[in-house]
Design a protein around this nucleic acid. Structure first.
Ligand code: FES
Ligand code: FES
Lengths: 132, 132
DNA sequence: GCTAATGATACCATATTAGTATCTTTTGTC
DNA sequence: GACAAAAGATACTAATATGGTATCATTAGC
């Protein structure tokens, strides 16, 4: 039961680091600091760049920088980018199986938990992580 | 981001059904009611039996029955059986990478969310689902 | 002894996750 | 302009988890 996968995790840390440094950071630097495989890190950063979280500069002296303020980057965004839509689960059974149709208590209870977790998750942004 | 996998889901419903019927139930009956592949259902029930949630009877007239009261079967138990330990995730990075060591805020925040979700999950038992 | 049930086990298919490799493009520096 | 250092694009591979199937052994009632 993993809420966060490895690439999301790496992405979060990369973004945190970049946010703290406040300058253009190269993959090389990130790889050295985080100890993550280079190619993997590259892929992750490229995606973050495509998704408008980071801004990239090619060529010598290039690298990555935040495109938006740390307090405007929420971890659910990052999760969505690497893990798809953030919602816990639907019902696996074929229609008409559930005795109470739309009133399935199991589903209801799980949905409540899901919503609570999501509401909490949604409040976490990069700023709230790095200013500790 | 799946909180519950398919086998857990099937297991939960099977247990609910068995709890409601209050008699020995065969795989055949469950398969008919839930519309789940037979072999898969068998595997799931056998596991539940091994894990002392169900009691099984071999031979003609055999089948499965609850071994403990519905209110004593918590869904986290079932999740643990099919999905391993219920916790959202640890830290993927190698030791000494996190700048604040034991005080990593990201980790802390995720742990809080995890604990809240778990506390809620832990309160759900089979009895609370079926008496709706 | 037959049949209807579960137990044990091994296998297969698919999807997701994690990671690698390679070639192209851009840009600053000499 | 050549070179080197960076990211962009893309395709491939490996490992793991999930979902499911198949088969033979064992037990117990009739
Ligand atoms: S069985 Fe699907 S919602 Fe209850
Ligand atoms: S980096 Fe692992 S806990 Fe912070």
């Amino acid at each position: 039961m993993k809420l966060i996968t490895r690439n999301t995790d790496y992405a979060l840390r990369a973004v945190c680091y970049i946010a703290q440094q406040k300058k253009v950071i190269t993959v090389t630097e990130l790889v050295n600091v985080l100890g993550v495989p280079r190619s993997f890190m590259r892929k992750i950063l490229q995606k973050l760049s495509k998704e408008k979280i980071l801004e990239s500069y090619k060529g010598q002296g290039g690298g990555f920088r935040l495109r938006i303020l740390p307090k405007k980057i929420f971890i659910v965004q990052i999760m969505r980018i690497f893990q798809g839509p953030v919602s816990l689960n639907g019902c696996f059974l074929k229609k008409d199986v559930c005795p109470n149709k739309g009133k399935c208590l199991l589903r209801k209870k799980i949905n409540i938990i899901e919503n609570n977790a999501l509401m909490q998750l949604r409040q976490i942004n990069i700023a709230s992580i790095i200013k500790g």
